[in-house]
Amino acid sequence: MIMPLIKGLQITLSHLFKKPVTLQYPDERPQIAPGFRGLHALKVSHENAKCVACYLCPTVCPAKCITVEAGEDANHNKFAAKYEIDMLRCIFCGYCVEACPVDALKMTEEFELANYKRADFTFTKDRLLEKK
């Protein structure tokens, strides 16, 4: 009866002398693991988004949070006239990145997505463009 109690307190006691695991966020920053799935970014090549608006990401998205509208540019090429992700719906599964046939999408290490207004969680194409 008394032995399990002592065993438990022993563990508690030992932790008093160990380095704490709690991170003093935001003063301390976490080390992001490789492959972490944070905020999406649209990759840029030759100063344009690589996205060709093939609609595979909205097709594969299980949360139905991606809205794409294709447009035709001056050279008759297809581009994403509208590319929006509703972060409130997104489940960060990364299927969109996996589905992309032209490697136009990636998931960054950015995880601080809190905001004040509902509308601010809709990430438009401008906000999603990769920052260099």
Partner: peptide, 9 residues
């Protein structure tokens, strides 16, 4: 209809 939608959608 060009670029308006994908067939499966």
């Amino acid at each position: 209809f060009k670029f308006k939608a994908r067939w499966w959608a």
